[in-house]
């Protein structure tokens, strides 16, 4: 029986043969350090934002690398790291089914309310 559900991972975009989901079994990955996604909080009170990725042997090295690669110019006050293989992503082939139905439902945006003048920051 053919399987229609394939688990998608971050990095699965692009060529099917070199995608991240299968890379655990390829030879190249044995010599390469795992990929990590880096999230930086630029100041207290803001969310961590994805800024890019890097290679590192483990979490300790990933944190040091992130500090060197992404916060050299005072960009951050906090770093989060997630190994890229742990990120589960939506399949780009499903984007029509997942996202397009929302496009013609403007009533879901809260833009039809009359706001009192005193409200400045909505």
């Amino acid at each position: 029986m053919k399987t229609f559900i394939r688990k998608m991972f971050y990095g699965d975009y692009g060529e099917e043969k070199n995608n991240a989901a299968e890379s655990n079994s390829t030879n190249a990955s044995k010599n390469e350090w795992p990929l990590w996604e880096v999230f930086i909080r630029s100041k207290q009170g803001l969310d961590h934002k994805h800024v890019g990725s890097l290679h590192a042997a483990d979490a300790v090295m990933a944190l040091e690398n992130a500090r060197d690669v992404y916060t050299r110019r005072g960009e951050g006050v906090s770093i989060w790291l997630v190994e890229s293989k742990n990120i589960h992503a939506s399949n780009p082939d499903d984007s029509a089914a997942l996202f397009e139905p929302a496009n013609d439902k403007i009533y879901r945006h809260p833009s039809f309310y009359e706001l009192p003048d005193e409200l400045k920051h909505m």
């Binding site: 350090w33 890097l54 290679h55 590192a56 690398n65 060197d68 690669v69 050299r72």
Partner: peptide
């Protein structure tokens, strides 16, 4: 040996 360590 690797970009990240080069920068470090």
């Amino acid at each position: 040996p690797i970009l990240e360590q080069d920068i470090a």
